[in-house]
Nucleic acid binder design. Structure first.
Lengths: 211, 211
DNA sequence: TGGCTTCTGTAACAATTGTCACGGAAGTGC
DNA sequence: GCACTTCCGTGACAATTGTTACAGAAGCCA
């Protein structure tokens, strides 16, 4: 699809100055990606920084044994800090990015990311804000795993999921949760049952309703 | 102490161009901080970005119950990503920075951090490299706590400590380790004893020797 | 309908981690 | 020396998390 200044103006309302929007429209590529598709995998290089317009993306961290733990979500108007460092440092990715909800995004070529930084202060601000937000997300994640037990972690996991997909009924299996939390299915089933008994959730096949 | 271009030249060998070194000498403040002193605590603001010349600093993350877990170390020629985001975003600190080994550092006023970014590409590079290194450190930390058991974590904890202070004999109590790993002293004592039995370390009062 | 796969529940047990309680060892100051 | 503090070791037990094994429920498809 063609990217127009008007469209960008509407989406990024007031965040960037007009001249930047014009350049954005010129070099940015409007892309879509369906749920489940991979934006990047560990070891790959990336040559453009995506800004998420709508939908959500989950950032996962793999270990050697093939497990993949969830780090955090990207949502509306978020950009990926990893892609920034990867691009600017020409480094391989250390994470996996999977589309959670169908995504519309604008991809910015890496040269522009760099160039604009000095030309547009709003862009520079955006880049640093991105770093900061990702840093905070990671810190929250660290907090969770260091200081909290699995039952609490499970609850906040579900809450973040609800926030990211904006619906009270999650379509997910126990197995998938276990994967993202780096534990086993049985443990998750056990804890979910516990949450159901205390009336905090309702369980259905392939679904979990938050109450 | 007076900061001279020559001194900076020697320390930062070839990393920055000469004009930048001159400005650095002009506005940077050479500071020292003894082991145990705090560079920043949660909730405080910071108005300059420190570049560590020598010594080491540990970055800790507190939780509500007063525990403080170790995130990672800063060492020679590292700068703190947190201080960058705090400065540039004028935000409160979310972490604690404690001097581990006596530190010599150059403090850069926040306005310059920003200003130089566009004027000196080596500075921009340095800033982004800093972000990247801190991000990687955090990811490693996340890996540890998500995927590894306490005995493995303890071993890598000791190894990183050795690397950061560059000596094979660590001066530390079990209690302190427990604090930094967010567990209890008894657990650490138990695991350390285990490591001693398998010949990986030697235990003494207030000291642990890596073998 | 019947066979198949996937998902969930659960019991039983193992391993890991956390807590409590206590005693002794090592250092410090007098 | 003695009192005192800090640090370390350890047993016993509790709580949490991980593993194994199996059964039934729910959906899919011929």
């Amino acid at each position: 699809m063609k990217l127009t200044t008007d469209y960008l103006q509407k989406i990024l309302q007031g965040r960037f100055e007009h001249t930047l929007l014009e350049e954005l429209a010129l070099v940015g590529q409007l892309k879509t990606a369906p749920a489940g598709s991979y934006l990047i995998r560990p070891g790959e290089y990336i040559r453009s920084v995506p800004i998420i317009i709508s939908g959500s993306v989950k950032i996962m961290r793999p270990d050697k044994e093939g497990r993949e733990a969830l780090l955090y979500y990207l949502g509306g108007l978020d950009a990926c800090a990893m892609s920034l460092t990867c691009c600017l440092g020409n480094k391989q990715s250390e994470i996996t990015a999977v589309v959670e909800e169908d995504v519309v995004m604008v991809a910015i070529p890496v040269e522009k990311v760099d160039e604009w930084m000095c030309r547009f202060s709003t862009w520079k601000q955006f880049v640093f804000q991105t770093y900061q937000k990702r840093f905070d997300s990671l810190l929250e994640t660290v907090d969770e795993v260091i200081f909290h037990k699995l039952d609490e972690r499970l609850l906040t996991y579900l809450q973040k999921k609800v926030a990211s997909c904006q619906c009270r009924v999650l379509s997910i299996t126990h197995e998938e949760i276990a994967g993202e939390m780096a534990t086993s299915r049985e443990v998750i089933s056990r804890l979910l049952k516990q949450l159901e008994r205390t009336g905090q959730i309702k369980l259905m096949r392939n679904k979990i309703e938050m109450v």
